[in-house]
């Protein structure tokens, strides 16, 4: 390759160094996840590289000990409601913010940015206090309400650039051809917005499954989601077999990963942390 012949040694060393760091990081990450998975199938694993034998029994044990059936059901209920409500609140708001200039718009945007800029523990404690005071503390409703705080602004901020890139003349054209507001919505806006909404809501879904702090602060015994149940299990490690906790961790991982894989079909991994990038054509 001629390209390498004119690349100076320092550049190649630098590249080598950078890739070494990446590979070291990825290897440890995979090792970390791998050891949880391996341990969950281990019969006995003490003082060796690999366990003595493999078994499924910890999954049954974990299912009973941690009432995983109930926990999973609660998790899906919470996630389902959070996804639906944040979509219903967030998408129309994003549409208005993308399409209209109105007094106080900057204020609204700031209001939506704040929950994403303040650590969840900071507002989670007063929020939990308020929810306990009005009687939602420890209940499913309380957990759902708490989880909406970061997800609604997230949907809005992901959707704004997506809506902005849709030419408003498309809507005008539909009106010119005689569609009323309702028909514009059903035949024009919904089909165009669908991919963006789907992507935003899938990201909400993945984030809500993994949302620990808020659920932890608000949930009671009957309203724990999987990640909170996992925390308590790890926290109280020693009471139960390590493998059984690992089995629960694997259940949690699989639940998250299924949705993550689905989400990645629609979005770029960078979008999970960053806003949707606008198409820039040259």
């Amino acid at each position: 390759m001629r390209a390498s012949s004119r690349t100076p040694l320092t550049t190649r060393l630098w590249a080598f160094g950078v890739w070494s760091v990446v590979i070291f990081f990825v290897l440890n990450l995979l090792g970390l996840i791998g050891s949880v998975v391996t341990s969950s199938f281990a019969t006995r694993w003490l003082g060796t590289w690999f366990p003595a034998g493999f078994t499924w029994k910890w999954y049954f044990a974990a299912w009973d000990e941690f009432q995983l059936g109930d926990v999973l059901w609660v998790t899906f209920e919470v996630v389902g409601w959070v996804v639906v409500i944040s979509g219903l609140l967030g998408v129309p708001a994003a549409y208005a913010l993308a399409r209209r200039e109105f007094p106080g718009k900057r204020f609204v945007v700031l209001l939506l940015l704040l929950p994403l800029l303040v650590p969840s523990v900071t507002y989670g404690i007063p929020l939990a206090t308020v929810l306990y005071k009005v009687g939602f503390g420890g209940s499913l409703v309380g957990v759902i309400l708490a989880n909406l705080v970061p997800t609604v602004p997230f949907v809005v901020l992901v959707m704004i650039p997506f809506i902005e890139q849709i030419d408003p003349r498309i809507e005008s054209a539909a009106r010119v051809f005689g569609a009323n507001t309702f028909k514009v919505f059903v035949y024009v806006l919904v089909p165009i917005l669908m991919p963006g909404v789907l992507a935003a809501l899938l990201l909400v879904l993945v984030r809500t499954i993994a949302m620990f702090e808020l659920t932890f602060l608000v949930a009671g015994p009957g309203s724990q989601t999987l990640v909170v149940a996992l925390y308590y299990a790890v926290f109280a490690a020693g009471v139960r077999a390590v493998q059984s906790i690992d089995a629960m961790a694997v259940v949690y991982m699989v639940t998250t990963l299924i949705w993550l894989i689905i989400a990645l079909r629609f979005v770029n991994p960078t979008q999970i942390v960053a806003r949707a990038k606008r198409d820039t054509s040259h």
Binding site: V26, I33, V36, V227, V234, T256, L257, L260, P269, I272
Partner: peptide
């Protein structure tokens, strides 16, 4: 691969 630890979260 890198998005894994973000989605799995600090507890896991």
């Amino acid at each position: 691969i890198l998005v894994l630890p973000i989605t799995l979260g600090t507890v896991l």
